[in-house]
Amino acid sequence: MGTMKLTLKAASPSKRRRQLSKNLVAYSFILPNLLGFAIFTLVPIAFSLGLSFMHWDGANEISWAGLDNFKALRDDDTFNIALKNTLWYVGGTVPLTMACSLGLAVLLNQPIRGRNFFRTVYFFPYVASLVAVAVVWNMLFFPSAGPVNELLRTLGVDNPPRWSASVDWAMPTVVMASVWRGMGYYMVIYLAALQGIPQILYESASIEGANAWQKFRHITVPLLTPATFFISIMLTISSFKVFDLILVMTNGGPGRATNVLVLHTYNTAFRQFKFGYSSSIAMVLFALVMIITVIQFYMEKRWVEYSQV
């Protein structure tokens, strides 16, 4: 990008014309998507971000609020609780899901009998109805007679956790459910990326006497970095935006133990009708995610290896 601008400045007219036509070709590729995306996503987003500096009850006049909404965030208990919970959730879900999905993908990229069956089955939790997911998960962790606690009791734990019915354990329970639900999804991306690794690299490494771990470490991991990069960003973003799973599993409870930012955003908008304030919470979420994403992008150059094969 930087170098491109430099060459543009020093370019001769004919070169500039070539760059112009190059730009036009590129824009023609982007236009069909950009048109719909700008009208139906970017414009509404700009509107709601603008709202974060306004007061609006969703029906009457909009009035200017300046930074009032953001100042009010500081004294909002629920916001602080939700922010903490969200960070907790992200910190738990992202690394665990990434590790599990990579593990599954590598495992299922081996010549294993019934491979297609396993691949399909591991993707299943993602397509299952959320109600079923919540029911089954809560049933596994049912406090009095669920299999998990039965197991813990036979292992000698006298007072096993009450999981989603307890303030302290509700969040870990949700995190585990989300890892379990999401790992098949990201496994699919890893699987697709694994197909891009030329088999010949492994063959020549074998000839040179590399063992399986060395091959994984020095061929698989580096060549998967574009996918890892994508997954780490998407997973971070979607974990910050967690909503549906929380809604059906705990609805933010017990009390506010699993209340997260998007749930709070939704409640302030549709229970309290403070649309401006609600947008300001979303802005904080947006800022957080963007800071992390931009950092990831800067680091990308250090660790993501694109097409060096």
Binding site: V131, A134, V135, N138, M139, F141, F142, P143, S144, R162, W163, S164, A165, S166, G253, P254
Partner: peptide, 10 residues
Amino acid sequence: MDYGELRAGN
């Protein structure tokens, strides 16, 4: 019945 279980068991 226990409230927490009614809730968890939907």
